[in-house]
């Protein structure tokens, strides 16, 4: 009797565990990544901005229009790529993301521009809005938020504004400064961390996505959702969405993604 019992118990546990695993959709224990590099195929020169306010300070920073920002080897910065989720859908989040969740993301009013110009914000993170321009008054106008409470506040040097958000915005939200009308930033607020804004060199990477098929949105401030854009073997649809299969333990490398002026509505 005792022998049988000791023998069968581990077997039973194994059988139950196996059954549970088999039932899991897109096994949450398996993750993969997606990356690529946006390359701008066009000829847009960053136009200098005519400084109309605080000339003596803002005029010293050689400010340029940031609608299209390119870097090394024509890398295209500020392209957003993010996971598309239907209403009510949720996604498993890799534990690595939780570690950085409570650190605030910073949007700085610095040298009469927003730094960064394009950023992502997981709803678990607070957003800290700073003003690092000594003696220069800035306001941050985020009245175009739709899912979250909007705001428009003066940001003084010594007192950053800290904002918490609860819901996903459907697309990057414009942040502006009414005092300096040329200032703009785009903040993508989502209730999951699967998003990226391409870096100066055009690269982006979204790590540790649950393995399986996912739709992503490609977005740029010039156009909104970027349609008909070839990413690897796939192409975005009219709403800028494209489906990829993320394989466990692998990184899907889209290589260079060519973006034309027309793609950005220029």
């Amino acid at each position: 009797m005792i022998r049988i019992a000791t023998f069968s118990l581990p077997m039973a546990i194994a059988a139950v565990a196996f059954a549970a695993l088999a039932d899991m959709p897109a096994s949450a224990a398996e993750w993969g990544s997606i990356k690529g590099r946006f390359v701008f195929d066009g000829d847009v020169k960053a136009e200098p901005i005519s400084i109309t306010k605080d000339k003596e300070y803002c005029g010293n920073h050689k400010l340029v229009d940031e609608t299209v920002v390119t870097g090394e080897k024509n890398g295209l910065a500020n392209m957003f790529v993010y996971l598309y989720l239907k209403r009510g859908d949720s996604v498993d989040v890799h534990p690595d993301y939780e570690k950085s969740a409570s650190e605030p993301a910073v949007l700085d009013n610095n040298e009469c521009r927003f730094e960064p110009h394009a950023m992502t914000l997981w709803t678990k993170q607070p957003l800290e809005i700073r003003n690092s321009d000594p003696g220069i008054g800035h306001n941050t106008n985020a009245m175009k938020l739709t899912a979250n409470p909007s705001f428009n506040e003066i940001i003084p040097n010594d007192k950053p504004a800290v904002k918490n958000f609860e819901k996903s915005e459907p697309a990057p939200s414009p942040f502006a400064c009414n005092i300096h009308p040329w200032m703009s930033a785009y903040v993508l607020i989502r209730d999951n961390p699967y998003m990226a804004a391409s870096a100066k060199d055009g690269t982006f990477e979204i790590k540790n996505v649950p393995a399986g098929k996912h739709e992503f949105v490609v977005w740029h401030e010039g156009k909104g959702n970027v349609r008909n854009l070839k990413l690897g073997k796939e192409k975005t649809d009219r709403k800028g969405r494209v489906e990829f299969e993320i394989k466990a333990g692998e990184t899907l490398d889209l290589g260079e993604v060519k973006v034309t002026e027309k793609d950005l509505g220029l």
Binding site: N152, K159, A161
Partner: peptide, 14 residues
């Protein structure tokens, strides 16, 4: 609170 809809920002927090 500023004037919502207009460019006028609020200073209530500062």
């Amino acid at each position: 609170q500023g004037i919502p809809g207009s460019p006028m920002p609020g200073v209530g927090a500062t």
